[in-house]
C-alpha cells in the first residue's frame, strides 16, 4: 500500500522473476558479508582493547619516525583516535546490512526507507575518507610528541583507500537522490490504474 492509497501486488514490482531471484541472492549474500564485517570490526577493537601491547606495536609500526616512546596518556590517546575508522566501518557495515535486508525482504524495491539508508552509508563513507587522513595525522603527532624538538612529525597523506571511500560515499549520496526520485515516480505510477 503506497501513500497514494492505490494498492498493487508486490509481484508487480519487478516484472522479471529472474531479476527478483538475483536481487534476493545478492542482498542475502551482502547482508551476511556486512554482518561478518561488523564482527571483524568488533573483534579488532576487542583485540586491541584486551592486548594493549599489540596496539602500541601497531601504532609504532604505523608511525616510523618514533624516536622516544610517548608512553602513557599520549599512547592511549593515539590508540583511541586510531579506533575511529574502525567505529565508522562498523556503523557503515551495520547500515549496509539494514539496507540489504530491506531490499531483499521488502515487498517493494522502492521502499521509502532505502534513500535515507543509502544517504547514511554515503555520509559514513565520506566520513571514513576524511577520518583516514585526520587520524593518520593525529596519531603521527601523538606518537612523535615525546621526540626531541625538530623530530616531531606532522603526517599528511592521502591513500588510494581514502579516495575510493570518498568516491563511493559521493556515489551513494547521488544514488540516494536518484532513489528518492525513483520512489516519487513509482508513487506517481501507482496512482494510475
Amino acid at each position: 500500500m503506497s501513500s497514494s492509497g492505490v494498492s498493487r501486488p508486490p509481484s508487480e514490482d519487478m516484472t522479471n522473476p529472474g531479476d527478483r531471484r538475483r536481487l534476493r541472492f545478492i542482498t542475502h549474500t551482502a547482508e551476511w558479508l556486512a554482518v561478518a564485517g561488523v564482527a571483524m570490526g568488533l573483534g579488532y577493537i576487542a583485540y586491541l582493547a584486551l592486548a594493549p601491547d599489540a596496539l602500541a606495536i601497531a601504532l609504532r609500526r604505523e608511525v616510523p619516525g618514533v624516536v622516544v616512546d610517548p608512553g602513557g596518556p599520549a599512547l592511549t590517546a593515539a590508540g583511541l583516535v586510531s579506533l575511529i575508522p574502525a567505529l565508522i566501518f562498523i556503523a557503515a557495515m551495520w547500515s549496509a546490512r539494514t539496507l540489504f535486508r530491506l531490499l531483499g525482504r521488502a515487498a517493494t524495491v522502492f521502499d521509502p526507507a532505502a534513500p535515507s539508508l543509502l544517504r547514511r552509508i554515503g555520509l559514513l563513507a565520506v566520513a571514513a575518507a576524511v577520518a583516514g587522513v585526520v587520524v593518520r595525522m593525529t596519531v603521527g603527532l601523538l606518537m612523535t610528541s615525546a621526540n626531541p624538538p625538530g623530530q616531531q612529525q606532522l603526517v599528511l597523506s592521502v591513500s588510494s583507500g581514502d579516495v575510493t571511500a570518498l568516491l563511493v560515499g559521493l556515489l551513494m549520496l547521488a544514488f540516494a537522490l536518484v532513489m528518492r526520485e525513483g520512489i516519487r515516480l513509482d508513487e506517481d505510477n501507482r496512482s494510475i490504474l
Partner: peptide
Amino acid sequence: QNVSLLKSGKVRG
C-alpha cells in the same frame, strides 16, 4: 479498493 478509488476519482489517471 482500487475500483473504489477509481469510482471516487481519487486516482491520477
